[in-house]
């Protein structure tokens, strides 16, 4: 081994006294962003009530202004609406079809009904369709809507055995496909566990596209997952369904953060659920700041029995908008790791 050299000698003098500033700088005017362009008010009628909202608002925002409860599944405040679940549809006078409240912009003079027979039927059917094809056991919101709208998903028949709903093939089905109407097709499939941080149970996926948005341009811009396939075989997938460690995934977990059905889940939560030790009602949530870099991300620590069991971030937090990185989301195990005094 080469002999160690001393530190080279061009060391510069340190602690050379810099002059101490004399007068404090006076405060300037309070800085503000440039004023936003004024928005006109738009007047419309929802369920016979008149409401005025700023131009560019959505029907959903108008409904919420009036306190009208509108179910949503694929909608999330911090993402652009994709309006695919169609559970938020409302009746717009003069429109042949129902319109999605989450994305349709208000116009002057619109007349909206949110509780007509047509609206209720569509919402109920959407919920029944999902509950009959997807495992909604960890989607309390969807279950509540289902009850509220009187859905009976079992009326489409018993769930098809998982063999019939394995990893979708590329063969084009036709008249002689396995369907015979005795069972209802589902998206049942084995849970994907390919890393220690989070699991993917696509039998619980309602294809709301939120994870794709969060992985893509709306937050993380990693694009590790996309929707693949078509029709009922559509699914969230990496390229050629490769396991996550072979994909572009950077484990920011922002897909978990937006998943409404528990299809994407912390491995820690999944393991506790499997072991029967997951007790959400016993958990406390505390907001704090991430211990790593200096960006200042708010972490919501979910704590059960003095253990962190998962980490989220508030959607309305202006630094994170609910999104974190791998360290903030998963890097908390050292708190209970070896090396801490017991």
């Amino acid at each position: 081994m080469e002999k160690k050299k001393p530190a080279i000698q061009e060391r510069l003098p340190f602690n050379e006294p810099a002059p101490c500033p004399t007068v404090p700088v006076p405060p300037g005017p309070i800085p503000a962003p440039p004023p936003a362009a004024p928005r006109d008010q738009v007047t419309l009628t929802v369920d016979d009530k008149t409401v005025r909202v700023p131009e560019g608002s959505t029907l959903l925002e108008a409904c919420r202004t009036l306190g009208i409860d509108t179910p949503t599944l694929c909608y999330l405040e911090n993402l652009n609406p994709v309006n695919v679940c169609r559970v938020c549809v409302v009746e717009l006078e003069g429109s042949r079809t129902l319109v999605p409240a989450c994305s349709r912009r208000v116009e002057n003079g619109m007349v909206i009904r949110t509780d007509s027979e047509r609206v209720r039927l569509s919402r109920r059917m959407v919920l029944e369709f999902l509950a009959s094809s997807v495992n909604v056991s960890t989607a309390p919101e969807l279950q509540a809507y289902l009850e509220q709208y009187g859905g009976q998903p079992e009326r489409f028949g018993p769930a098809a055995p998982p063999e019939a709903a394995e990893e979708p093939g590329t063969e084009r089905p036709a008249v002689d496909c396995p369907t015979d109407g005795r069972t209802a097709a589902t998206v049942a499939q084995p849970v994907k566990i390919d890393n220690d941080l989070y699991i993917r149970d696509y039998s619980k996926c309602i294809l709301c596209y939120k994870c794709v948005q969060a992985c893509g341009e709306e937050a993380q811009n990693t694009f590790a997952i996309a929707v693949a396939g078509r029709g009922f075989d559509s699914r969230i997938s990496t390229e050629y369904s490769v396991p996550l460690p072979d994909s572009a995934c950077v484990y920011c977990g922002n897909c978990i953060g937006v998943c409404p059905t528990g299809a994407l889940m912390f491995k820690s939560e999944y393991d506790m659920r499997e072991a029967g030790t997951w007790k959400e009602s016993d958990q406390e949530r505390t907001d704090t700041i991430c211990p790593y870099c200096g960006v200042g991300c708010t972490l919501t620590l979910h704590v059960q029995e003095n253990q962190i069991v998962k980490v989220t971030s508030p959607l309305d937090q202006e630094v994170t908008r609910g999104h974190l990185c791998i360290k903030g989301r998963f890097g908390w195990q050292f708190v209970r790791g070896k090396g801490r005094k017991k």
Binding site: N83, V126, L130, G181, T183, L207, R230, G231, F232, S234
Partner: peptide, 19 residues
Amino acid sequence: DESCGQCVPCRVGTVRQEE
């Protein structure tokens, strides 16, 4: 077979219709 799969009414509805 031809439903793009984007929205729930069509993605699941076309399957339930056939069944």
